[in-house]
Computed example of a mutant assay.
Amino acid sequence: MGRLDDRVAIITGGAQGQGAATARLFLNEGARIVIADVREDEGKALAEELGERACFIRLDVSDEANWQSAIGSITDRWNTIDVLINNAGIVHIAALVEMERKDFQRVLDVNLIGPWLGIKAVAPVMIAQCRGSIVNILSTGALWSMNSTGAYMAAKWGLRGLTKNAAMELGWQGVRVNGVFPGGVNTPFANIGNKSTEEMNKLYVGQTIQRIGEPEEIAEASLFLASDASSYMAGSELTVDGGMTLGVFHDYLPGAPPNASEGQD
C-alpha cells in the first residue's frame, strides 16, 4: 500500500530535475501524476515513461488563465486534485543595481506569483472535498541571502510568507500548506555546467553533510508533507540542506572537519 494511493498530484516544473524525481517517487507511492511544465518534449517523454497514471499538461505557472484551463482538464480526467507541489522556479544572476526590471519581474512572476496562482486555482477543489496538501518548494534562499540573486531571494522570502498565510487561511478548511527548503541539489538548476557529482561535492565541504543533495532527497521531504504522515503539520518549514544554514566552520577552532576551509573559498 502506497502513501499516496489513488491521489492526484500536480507537480509544477515536473519535467526534469527535482520535479521529475518527485513525480517518479509519487507514482511509486500510488499517486496519479500531472507533470505541469513549459518544457513540452521532456514533460511528454516523462509522462510516457511513467505510464497511464501520469499525464503532461503544458503550464506557464505565471498565467492565471493557463492555470484555470489546467485545473479543468485535470478534474475532467480524474475528478479530484489532492496534492499540489509548487516546484517550478527560475533564477536570474545579476547584481541588484544592474538588474533590469523585466528580469526582476519575471523571477517574481514564476517563483512567487506562480505558486499563489496555483494555490488559488486548486483551493476550491480541495476545500470542496475537505482534503488536500500543498507543498511550496522554497530554498535556503528564504533563510539567508547571496549576492547577485536579489530577485530570487525576494521571491523566495515572499513565498515563505505566502506559505504561512495560506496555511492559516486554508488549514481550517481541510487544506494543509507547508514548505520545503532545499539546499544545493544536483539538478540542472544548480549544476549548470553539468559537472560530475564528485566535482559538485567539493563545493559543499564547508557544510555539515559534505556533499551536494540529490533530487530524490527533496522528493522524500515533499512526499512526507503530501501524505497523511504529516497530518498535524500546517505552515511548517522543512529544511533539507545538508546543514548549509547551520553556520560556518572555523578551522582554527575544535570540532571542524579537516577540509572545512576548502568550502569557504
Score class of each variant (00 low, 15 high):
6 D>A: 07
58 R>I: 00
146 M>K: 09
200 M>G: 12
173 Q>C: 05
140 T>C: 02
76 D>P: 02
259 N>T: 03
179 G>W: 00
212 I>R: 04
62 S>I: 01
259 N>S: 01
258 P>V: 11
61 V>M: 02
265 D>P: 04
220 E>H: 15
150 G>W: 05
46 L>W: 03
113 I>Y: 09
235 G>M: 08
172 W>Y: 13
95 A>G: 11
46 L>A: 01
28 N>R: 15
213 G>W: 04
263 G>K: 11
213 G>H: 06
161 G>S: 13
178 N>F: 04
110 V>I: 09
259 N>D: 10
28 N>H: 10
69 S>C: 06
210 Q>K: 14
160 R>F: 13
247 G>Y: 05
44 K>T: 15
216 E>R: 01
265 D>R: 08
142 A>Q: 01
95 A>I: 04
63 D>Q: 10
175 V>D: 12
31 A>N: 08
225 L>Q: 10
47 A>W: 03
245 T>M: 09
45 A>P: 04
167 A>S: 15
185 V>A: 05
242 G>W: 13
263 G>Q: 14
169 E>H: 14
178 N>Q: 09
25 L>T: 07
206 G>Q: 06
122 V>Y: 01
44 K>M: 12
165 N>E: 14
12 T>G: 10
74 I>M: 09
171 G>T: 13
233 M>K: 04
22 T>E: 13
188 P>D: 06
91 V>I: 05
92 H>W: 06
113 I>Q: 08
50 L>A: 04
178 N>M: 06
260 A>S: 13
32 R>Y: 05
